[in-house]
Design a protein around this nucleic acid. Structure first.
Lengths: 161, 161
DNA sequence: TATTGTTATACTCTATAACTATA
DNA sequence: TATAGTTATAGAGTATAACAATA
């Protein structure tokens, strides 16, 4: 059988997504676009909007003073070069500071600034709320299911127990 | 209480993700990075690697001859300008052709080429397999659960019933 | 020899706005 | 006045490779 249609579709309701209809990675990828766009809107103008990594970095540095860029790199799934540029950008914005470690001069220690701490405090509720609101039409039980499974996947991929 | 640690962590296992630990959008965004990277690897050199949209476009045009760019734009969550550039790129690669509609000269009809059809046939199993393999460590039942929920979210966002 | 971080490059995506042509 | 598609631009992310300094 062939799913090919005879006349061109004139509305999205006449379209099927071919094999993507049942492909989990397709939904992850498209939902990422939607949820990231919504998050950017909610954080507009806030110095951590746009792109993945800024929020995680800010919260990690705030919660773990002295954390190293290479650890953040592993957790946000970026390489060291991308992470380095991210740190530089956040330092330029006055959110974090970088210090050379006294015990191993190759490594840097990251510390939050006052401005960074204030921003962290401000975005924590926003980030939580955005996720909850965005998935509002999915029941809390299913949201939890979804998160449990994805959390397991994430932890496995970054190498957490 | 304060989750702040006293000494800098030296391994990712000593780190907690702050509020992101329980934030669904965080996991969607990070899993997107991982799954997209893996998909790019699996499709390396294949003219549809890199970026979301090329695969969907190729399969949609193959399954729905004469489909319009604006319909594809809605389904891949891009605006018309981004979609237009995507169409141009795929036409340059000889995968699709664009024709002006005879009934409404504003709209274009997209058609697959021989080369495009061959590529579509080739990637269909690859795309399905990639998703299955990538989430192999999650049980088939849970994969299905995950997909059902995300599919519902996707359909709601693009405005499908 | 491995690790941490830097630099450079080239490519792609994203968002916005202004524009043409047609309905 | 609304719709389909184009063009231009600025900002961001991504991948890769080569590099310096240190362990």
């Amino acid at each position: 059988m062939d799913a090919r249609s005879k006349t061109p579709p004139t509305s999205i309701t006449e379209v099927t997504l071919d094999v993507l209809e049942d492909t989990l990675s397709f939904y992850i990828r498209t939902m990422n676009i939607a949820v990231s766009r919504d998050l950017d809107d909610k954080l507009e103008g806030l110095d951590v909007a746009k792109g993945t990594g800024k929020i995680t970095t800010l919260l990690l540095v705030d919660s773990h003073p002295g954390i190293r860029p290479s650890i953040i790199a592993e957790l946000i799934l970026r390489d060291r070069s991308a992470t380095g540029r991210l740190m530089e950008q956040m330092e330029d914005h006055g959110l974090i500071t970088r210090r050379q470690s006294s015990t191993d001069s190759r490594v840097q220690e990251l510390y939050i600034t006052e401005k960074g701490a204030a921003l962290a405090a401000r975005i924590r509720p926003l980030v939580t709320e955005q996720s909850r609101d965005f998935f509002k039409f999915i029941s809390p039980e299913e949201q939890q299911q979804l998160m449990d499974i994805l959390k397991r996947a994430y932890r496995r991929i970054v190498g957490l127990p």
